[in-house]
Design a protein around this nucleic acid. Structure first.
Lengths: 212, 212, 212, 212
DNA sequence: CATGAATGAGTCTTCATTCAT
DNA sequence: GATGAATGAAGACTCATTCAT
């Protein structure tokens, strides 16, 4: 289409600059959203945090809400990739592995996860599309795992859906104080231990003498 | 200041009227907060729902935020009373009882709990004063219970703080879909069963054969 | 509903004050609209011209466009009343009378008519609802008048719709320079003469010798 | 400044290219102005329609408004040429001819005429420079024509300025529904008939029996 | 005390214009 | 000259709070 040498490079460079700017804006936004919530964050603040003019935001996003959706969408895609590589759960250590990986994900994206949870709490669309929908697969895997073990006589006849949810609740309980900034993020080792302990609890409970 | 007979009564009556009006406003507010969130609720709406003029709100509360704080504070006091009557946890059924009572409380005050959690998520002050602070006592009781049982050799040597938190996470996982409006509120019987199962899980886990 | 003496009066007074304020805002708006057009008039300017805060506008109107529609609607109602009293056209002087009355109306509401025409030019809805629709009756009357006269052999067999429209064009041509501020408003006598002359022209044209 | 052969040609070619680009931009602009109005047309839209970058507009025009003025100015020049070739009006058919030519002009440049009238209505400068000024010559010719005929006893002693203006009003009344998009453009034959009828009306009116 | 109209700072968004590449 | 991203001054509208009645 063009014979000018170097034009391709030029266009590509510009494209990269644009993408970088988009990312900068999203990064600035997610930081603010995490701290103050989407609704309490003004476009002025986002612009300042991204070090651009307010109008510039609108060259990259159709509006404030689209910044939020882009933030959630893009990061979700990244997370999805990590999770989908987990494959079927086969044994105890697989579950521990998934839990540990989830800890890693959450800790490495605190701002994002906090934003996601806040908005999912307030917005049915986001809850459905970005939390329930994305959690479904994992939920299914866990339930399948439990169902198989029950059939094999390894687990007692619990409600798989309930257990899966309780597991998520325990995970959330471990993670929320960190998200909320009232507990320091656990380091890699602590995350591993936490995952172990969490699975221990759900598998064996805490009781050793049945007369209590 | 005055010796007219009956004034004391009059003053008391006025006092009661004022208190009643405060309550009406708070009741109107919490309904709206639960549905739309604090931030999306306007003072105009609160006034209309309470059937007073907008300006009247400011005769009873210093501002919109104070309505929120009053709502939380008052309802918390009521909840507190219920909880504090629980006494020390002695045996398994005591824990089940507390969990069931908590279910009752949450279900009977969905709007309030939803509002509280939303705002606690966004606001450090509310989180600290109305969630962490109020949960502390219960947390302590649970931990003491566990510590005793460990000492008695009934429970294995788990981290009491962790277990207590996991228990809360499981409780939250059971309750949040209801709060969020994506699951119907459980009836009394279901709540009892849920409490049982929840305690079962934490005490015994799900495993019956240790080779898995 | 209330037994407090004077309340009725108080409420009525307040009601009058509100209506007065509405009128003030509309008056301020129509003045600005006439000079700069609706689109070039800011809510800030309207507020300043009406000597209220910008937000106050929104206590009286749902938005900027509603101010425009209210202005047009209210004044139209007034004009309607004048026009509808005209009755059927019977003779030449009736037409002169209607034309003269229309001149009076336009001259006494210059700002309004200018606004109406501007917006009708730009907006199909306003054109249809407030110009075409309202002109229809008059148009029909004129056409009926012409049809009768043609039947009676008094007028030649012209197209009544065309003549009616031409008459409106002539009226517009007489009035637009005044609306546009490039000619002074005619006084009562001039308006009467203009009406006479306009009807003369359409009835007799300008020719006296048919060989030209 | 340079003696290189062929430079003159080169410069001329560049000049032509620039002029062509200017015309492309103006053509794109007038199309948009006609449909959406000057104020509702963005420079971005003009640039897209002209298939250039937004910034490029500013290499050819000082600003958005200058595009409008250029559009009006250039097209006016073309119209002028047509009109000025009409020469002095001598007889009835000359007037019919001018009116028919004007119909042709308007119909063939609907977009432009609509834009011109809109902006002239809102802007004194454009009204004066591009409508009143350009209409003056035609107005004079018509008035001279009338004055002569009055002197010759062919026309009655009407006010020439008034008649000229009425003629314009009738013309406008015939043309505006088309401009406004609520009537289809008349074809060549219809335009001729309309011109005839219009002149008939102004010359002879509609009356054949003077007792009405 | 009750009222509700008035206020104006603050929000999101648009768009003509500029300027580095 | 061409490009189009960056700019920032407006603009319409919202809403918690105040205050005269």
């Amino acid at each position: 289409m063009s014979a000018k040498p170097g034009e391709y490079t030029l266009r590509a460079r510009r494209q990269r600059r644009i993408e970088r700017r988009r990312q900068e804006i999203m990064a600035a936004a997610v930081r603010l959203f995490a701290v103050k919530g989407y609704i309490n964050t003004t476009t002025k603040e986002i612009a300042e945090a991204a070090d651009v003019a307010e109008g510039t935001l609108y060259n990259y996003f159709a509006g404030k809400r689209e910044i939020l959706l882009a933030v959630i969408s893009e990061t979700q895609a990244a997370i999805e990739m990590v999770l989908s590589s987990s494959g079927a759960l086969q044994q105890r250590s697989d579950i521990v592995g998934v839990v540990a990986t989830l800890f890693d994900l959450v800790v490495s994206r605190l701002a994002f996860v906090r934003t996601l949870l806040t908005e999912a709490w307030l917005d049915n669309l986001i809850l459905q599309d970005f939390v329930i929908e994305r959690t479904k697969q994992l939920d299914q895997q866990i339930q399948s795992f439990i169902v198989e073990r029950i059939a094999a006589g390894a687990y007692r006849a619990v409600e798989p859906a309930l257990v899966s949810r309780m597991l998520m609740g325990m995970f959330a309980a471990a993670v929320i104080p960190v998200l909320r900034g009232i507990a320091p993020p656990p380091n890699a080792e602590e995350r591993q231990l936490l995952a172990e302990e969490l699975v221990n609890l759900i598998l064996d409970g805490i009781r050793v003498r049945s007369d209590f």
